[in-house]
């Protein structure tokens, strides 16, 4: 009974900020369990279950190899083309599915939002974890692929978590922004797949970012995923592919801005979620 004094709080109009971040920590178990639920539900009642996480990127890679490598004969900077494409597919697939899941997460959890209190930030954050699990599975495939081509990684591999984190925040930041708007304007349901599809072609997945004319490069770097994808490739190839610090710096700045705007927008709209969803 002495415990209860820790739970004194005040609900006041427009003043839920104070205990928000503390609550976020208090509700971390809900975060784990929602993330686990999303992963568990994804492959329930599928015949081959987790194999889907392997088949999807593998098939996409095969198509890319055929279309860009064999037919268009784009340069691969001395790396076996399958590895060249797959190392870019990894961060892109992670970003696109994390972004799409986060964007739709609030709507698909509408019943929770209108019936229970918890910091809403947990929902999109947990949904990104599904993409993370897929990423880890795909990464194992990449390692197998590298072993097949006897292509050994270098110490650059240690920098990989950095690019993964950059991709994570790019997805979460933009996901938060779109998710909060999605609650009020359902148009974003149709916008998201479009962004994801378009993004694949304007990101250097099937080709090298060095094919972009020099005068447009700094403009091209505004796409934060360019640095993440180039970075991944640089890590996997052991430094033989194009990557420079300018794109990294621009990307970090852009991602930071996206995250700040995303969180602010989310927090601003969060209070009305239960009323409009």
């Amino acid at each position: 009974m002495t415990k209860q004094h820790q739970f004194q709080f005040t609900i006041e109009a427009g003043k839920s900020e104070r205990h928000y971040w503390m609550d976020l920590w208090r509700y971390r178990e809900l975060f784990y369990i929602l993330a686990w639920r999303d992963v568990a539900v994804r492959y329930k009642q599928t015949v081959i279950g987790l194999l889907w996480a392997i088949i999807r990127p593998l098939l996409t890679m095969v198509i890319f190899v055929i279309v860009f490598g064999k037919i268009a004969k784009l340069p691969s900077e001395g790396v076996p083309y399958p590895i060249y494409v797959f190392s870019a597919m990894l961060p892109w697939t992670f970003f696109s599915s994390a972004f799409a899941d986060a964007s739709n997460s609030l709507i698909s959890n509408a019943n929770l939002i209108s019936k229970v209190y918890f910091p809403r930030l947990i929902i999109p954050a947990a949904s990104v974890m599904v993409a993370m699990v897929d990423f880890i599975i795909s990464f194992v495939i990449l390692l197998i692929l590298m072993a097949w081509y006897q292509y050994w990684p270098s110490w650059n591999l240690l920098a990989l978590p950095l690019f993964l984190i950059l991709g994570f925040f790019a997805a979460l930041g933009s996901g938060l922004f779109v998710a909060s708007l999605n609650v009020k304007y359902r148009d974003f349901r149709y916008v998201v797949p479009f962004i994801v599809q378009l993004g694949l072609y304007i990101s250097p997945v099937g080709f090298s970012s060095s094919v972009v004319p020099e005068q447009y490069q700094s403009f091209y770097y505004l796409n934060p995923m360019v640095a993440v994808i180039d970075g991944f490739r640089w890590v996997i190839s052991g430094g033989s592919t194009a990557f420079n610090s300018t794109e990294l710096n621009i990307s970090v700045i852009v991602v930071s801005i996206i995250c700040v705007i995303g969180v602010l927008q989310f927090r601003r709209m969060e209070k009305t979620f239960a009323d409009v969803i």
Partner: peptide
């Protein structure tokens, strides 16, 4: 009271989990 939605004005003090 369950903090699902915010009040427009006014205050609630809650003492306990």
């Amino acid at each position: 009271l369950s903090r699902i939605t915010d009040p427009t004005s006014g205050k609630i003090h809650i003492n306990g989990r």
